[in-house]
């Protein structure tokens, strides 16, 4: 019996190692290429680990391209989007969690249904709207759009987190003389803090990753965000893959750091939202 278990475990491990290797490989290859000089990038016999690792690619994109500007734009857009979307969704999530009101079902349904609208259908009228408001090629156009598209899932997630805070605590606070607003800020928010941080990071990542709206709503180097900026590194005939991969590493790194922190919440959050359904 013990032996059978051990054989089974060995099979499971082997399969897992094969699959995980395939899943992680493209990322490793990106890292590896980022640290290679051109003579090692363009070679017939590629190597896993660069023979002569170099920071040259990072050096070039950080000091000789518009990459730092793209980075700054992405950070500004991501942060402001996060603050606005969070402020708006904390209230909405709280309302969904604590109140029964006319139109609640309709509101929840709308949140769900809005997930289905093809972004490409939305972008055409949004582009025209921004054109009319003279907001094309500004941070504002991206921030407003991202904050809105972040609303449905953030509201749902926050509602799920607020649901886990017992209503008794709030009522006790009210007996002690807190009003509704104080009950929210002093009781609910601190208790739901891990959930709020998770949602905040999800919103930031949504803005950090977004490509299509950024491609359409910005037009100059000064306003481009990272995903669009980096896609411009693709050469018409020949691409400098070392630099492109170095840029990719910088774009991906902050998200990886967030996810290391988030990992324990992700499964939990998904269970809260999805399985309970």
């Amino acid at each position: 019996m013990a032996r059978r278990l051990r054989i089974k475990q060995a099979i499971v491990l082997t399969l897992l190692i094969i699959i995980v290797t395939i899943l992680v490989f493209p990322f490793i290859w990106m890292l590896s290429t980022a640290f290679k000089g051109p003579e090692e990038v363009f070679t017939q016999i590629p190597r896993w680990i660069p023979l002569k690792p170099t920071l040259m690619n990072f050096n070039t994109i950080l000091f000789n391209t518009s990459f730092p500007r793209y980075f700054l734009n992405s950070v500004v857009v991501g942060m402001v989007t996060m603050v606005i979307a969070l402020a708006v969704t904390i209230f909405a999530g709280y309302a969904l969690s604590r109140y029964n009101f006319r139109g609640k079902t309709a509101f929840s349904m709308w949140l769900l249904v809005s997930q289905m609208f093809p972004p490409v259908l939305m972008i055409i009228p949004i582009f025209v709207l921004m054109l009319q408001l003279k907001l094309v090629n500004t941070y504002a156009s991206l921030i407003i759009t991202y904050a809105t598209f972040a609303l449905p899932f953030s509201t749902w997630m926050l509602k799920a987190y607020f649901d886990t805070v017992p209503i008794d605590l709030e009522e006790a606070a009210k007996v002690d003389g807190c009003n509704q607003f104080q009950a929210l800020t002093k009781i609910i928010l601190p208790l739901a803090a891990p959930g709020i941080v998770t949602v905040a990071l999800f919103i930031f990542i949504l803005a950090w990753h977004e490509f299509m709206f950024a491609l359409t709503l910005t037009s100059t180097t000064e306003m481009r965000t990272l995903p669009v900026g980096i896609s411009l590194f693709l050469g018409e005939y020949r691409t400098l893959w070392g630099q492109l991969m170095a840029g990719s590493v910088i774009v991906t790194a902050p998200v990886v750091v967030f996810f290391v922190y988030l990992q324990r919440y992700i499964v939990q959050g998904l269970t809260l939202g999805a399985v309970k359904g």
Binding site: I19, F27, W208, H209, F211, P227, L234, L244, S248, V256
Partner: peptide, 18 residues
């Protein structure tokens, strides 16, 4: 296992082009 999910889709597309 989560790594591909974390990579922005534009970066994923560029990475695979390479």
């Amino acid at each position: 296992v989560l790594v591909p999910w974390v990579v922005p889709s534009v970066v994923a597309a560029l990475d695979w082009r390479w």
